[in-house]
């Protein structure tokens, strides 16, 4: 091991890496928000009385859960235009793919949280004269959401790391900018070490929040 580390060169790329970090964070926020909406819709469809809705939602969830994210990204970017004629730019394809991918995992968490609430709670709400929709909104969801929060946050942390895959579509995220810097400087070791460190630094506070949420939940029940 006679490699001499030189982090000074990387300092010159700080703005590029920073802009990559901003893209990664922005992308993560977008796919978490859209993914939660997709997940909620799929979870409610899973619990609906209509077999068609249940089947459609099941097909969606399994298709996305069981396909590697990298394959999905490439498919949405390269194959979708050929199959459907819809051409998505790299960023849009990334957001759509990560949203649907994350949504399939969120759906299972949300569904699990809802069915974990004792059926006596719904019965008590119904007995008061609430409609099923109101029971869901006033009685079941407020309790279920509390249970869903820790696993949803864990899944979102995974989503944050998943966004690094969009670099294969040349979306200028943190990893992509790192690749640019690495190629420019021939200092791949330094650059990728810094990139890895940035992912950790951004996620560390989030994991603390998750831990705390889990502890609070354990206490309140």
């Amino acid at each position: 091991m006679s490699y001499t580390w030189n982090f000074d060169i990387v300092w010159g790329y700080r703005w590029i890496l920073l802009s990559g970090t901003a893209v990664t964070i922005g992308l993560t926020i977008a796919v978490i928000v859209f993914g939660l909406v997709a997940g909620l819709v799929a979870a409610i469809a899973q619990l609906s009385r209509s077999p068609v809705l249940r089947w459609m939602s099941w097909a969606y969830i399994e298709m996305f859960r069981l396909t590697p994210l990298l394959v999905l990204l490439l498919w949405f970017y390269y194959a979708l235009p050929i199959v459907t004629g819809i051409k998505l730019d790299a960023l849009t394809a990334s957001i759509v793919t990560l949203t649907l991918y994350g949504g399939s995992f969120y759906a299972e968490i949300i569904r699990g949280g809802i069915v974990s609430i004792d059926s006596g709670q719904s019965e008590a709400g119904m007995a008061l004269g609430m409609t099923p929709a109101r029971v869901m909104r006033r009685i079941v969801l407020p309790q279920a959401i509390k249970r869903m929060i820790p696993p949803l946050m864990n899944q979102s942390i995974i989503q944050f790391k998943n966004t690094s895959l969009v670099s294969v579509l040349a979306v200028p995220d943190l990893l992509y900018q790192g690749q640019v810097a690495a190629m420019d400087t021939y200092r791949a070791l330094e650059v990728y070490t810094i990139v890895a460190a940035i992912y950790v630094v951004v996620l560390l506070p989030l994991t603390v929040v998750v831990k705390r949420a889990e502890k609070r939940l354990a206490q309140s029940n």
Partner: peptide, 24 residues
């Protein structure tokens, strides 16, 4: 329908074996 059922139920009070209070 679900609305009619709900209206019907609102006219009867039900007390359950396991209370089923809303914990939140």
């Amino acid at each position: 329908g679900t609305k009619e059922q709900a209206r019907f139920r609102s006219n009867t009070g039900m007390v359950f074996q396991h209370f089923n209070l809303f914990p939140h």
